[in-house]
Amino acid sequence: MAKLMLEVNNLNVSIKVKQKVYPALEDITFKVNENQVVGVVGESGSGKSLTAQSILGILPANTEVTGSIKLENDELINKSSKAWQKLRSNEVSLIFQEPMTALNPLMKVGKQISEVLRKHTNYSNNECYRKTIDILKEVGLKRPESIYHSYTHELSGGMRQRIVIAIALVNNPKLIIADEPTTALDVTIQAQIIDLLKDIMKKRNGAMLFISHDWGVISQVCDYVLVMYAGKIVEQGPMENLISNPQHPYTKGLLKAIPDFKKRGEALYSIPLRVPALTERRKGNWPYIEITEENKQVVADIFPEILQRETKE
């Protein structure tokens, strides 16, 4: 039995805008085991990044969180900001999407990596330097000594993304959250970064939460997937099952919309609904679409849940 790393139970996040409270995440429940990569897919506005932010404790100030997030049986919700600070990078760390904005352009990249060690450990300067060189080697950068002393503008996009990964990994966190780590990259570089992440996962027995809107990338990296829509998990399951045999009509729709060579000459399927904006949402009313006589059939085709709700009422 694999060890349980992260357990999220009934997580609800609501955001306050102009004195009104809107639901942003509802009833998020999932688990991440050791040695497992869990993918999160969804359109923009589906709450993927918000889920990551709640696990990292970096939600904006106007939010309210209920439910439970347990990292190795340690409850994270309602921790003090000092406790969170200790947790980040020691226990959980984040790989950012945009390497250009995540890194400091005025600071040598080596310093940026070793800063993590300086803040979180008692290593001497010398040890910090050696650890940094080791991690640079591990993320596949050649000539780590000269990379240590270079600035971000001297590196290519792929190299920068490797630096961002190095910063996330340097302190051996138990859980890594990767927020769209390959979205800003070209396909060839993307393939390299995917290989690197897979390698690292194998070597370190870590657990990873992998957020992406790209089914191609998700299917390459993940063992288990969550599909999200408007702040709720629509469907979750092991990767192979989910792709070959999706259960929920929304998941089916997303998969059908992917263009490829075989679909040439035919029109692509497109989900006829858009993700509702935060201020259009009312609690307990998911998927937050106003149902009229005309769109009832369309909505029910994609979210059969609404029919159940009506019979309940």
């Binding site: 396909v187 060839t188 993307q190 393939a191 995917i194 790209d214 089914w215 191609g216 990338v217 299917s219 390459q220 192979e240 792709i243 998969l255 992917i258 060579f261 040439r264």
Partner: peptide, 28 residues
Amino acid sequence: TEEFHQEEHAEYTKKLFNAIPDVSFTSR
């Protein structure tokens, strides 16, 4: 495009097209 799967291609083209992540498990 129609002939893409039949013809011989330049090294770089092959590399580029092989890097596309495929939504299936054949490439995994």
